[in-house]
Amino acid sequence: MAENTTTVKGTSLWKDAWKRLLKNKLAVFGLIVMIVMIIAVIIGPAIIRWATGYTYYYIPPENELVKSFPPSLQHPMGTDDAGRDILARVLQGGRISLMVGIISTIVSLIVGVSYGAIAGYLGGSIDNLMMRIVDILYSIPYILIVIVLLSVFGGSNMPEWIKILSDKIGGEGNQGLSQIFLLFFALGLVSWLTMARVVRGQILSLKNQEFVMAARATGVSTFAIIFRHLVPNTLGPVIVYATLTIPSVMLTEAFLSFLGIGVQPPFASWGSLAADGIKNVAIYPWQLIFPGVTMALTLFSLNFLGDGLRDALDPQTRKF
């Protein structure tokens, strides 16, 4: 009898989800593009510098002919008005765009998850009040307020604490950097509402289960129950939603940079590069097309990855 039994290997939620994700060709495509893109923006600028001597700010000396050259072997994406290599600028801009997307999403995660978890766990009138506030905030046209916020506080009117924070992390007196920090907060604070709702819904369905009761019976504090026991169990939907928040935040950043109130020189993002390219689209279309296409490809991949993750992590909703 013993020789007939085959051992069944146990599988965890995450392994199972990973297997399902790998079956989804579009999600795998998205994952691969994102990995390549992240590696490219991290090491790409250094490689270009090593191979051709170009950096995102390198302007050819005055004795050389400065004009916008179309794509060539030396400059695969061409050069811009000042003669700078567009590939190097797109890679450098990718760093900023991805960083804004990821860090703003983390800000929205921290706020949204805490808020939703606290409201869901405490329940009753506190929950009612907290979610009413979310409902009210939902109907505010945020984009208007973000535009006002960024333009009144941008540039030389930067709030002191953001200046100090950006000086501490990224070196002193860098106005462009503190503008990017302002973007993190502005965009993060806009996108936490849905996250709070998602997490609250999850917590509501979890909080009456035995493990929470056990934790309460053994005298674990409310804070620890929420953040040690309940929040880790909401990870699946939170990851899915975060993956889909990154492209939408990146799109908003690009929109703001296009209007000239987002990322400021000397920094550039895909949005600000595309905005620069638009001015010359009739004569030098590559100035717009390459940053635009790179950005679209990234968002495309992130969206597919987010969709795939949702299907993989939540097989119940996958009726179709």
Partner: peptide, 24 residues
């Protein structure tokens, strides 16, 4: 797939590209 593409191309990139193709 086309819908996903529509979600991923920023409108300020799409607009000028349409102008480039259909107007210029």
């Amino acid at each position: 797939s086309l819908a996903m593409l529509g979600l991923s191309v920023p409108n300020f990139v799409l607009g000028p590209i349409l102008v480039l193709i259909f107007s210029l």
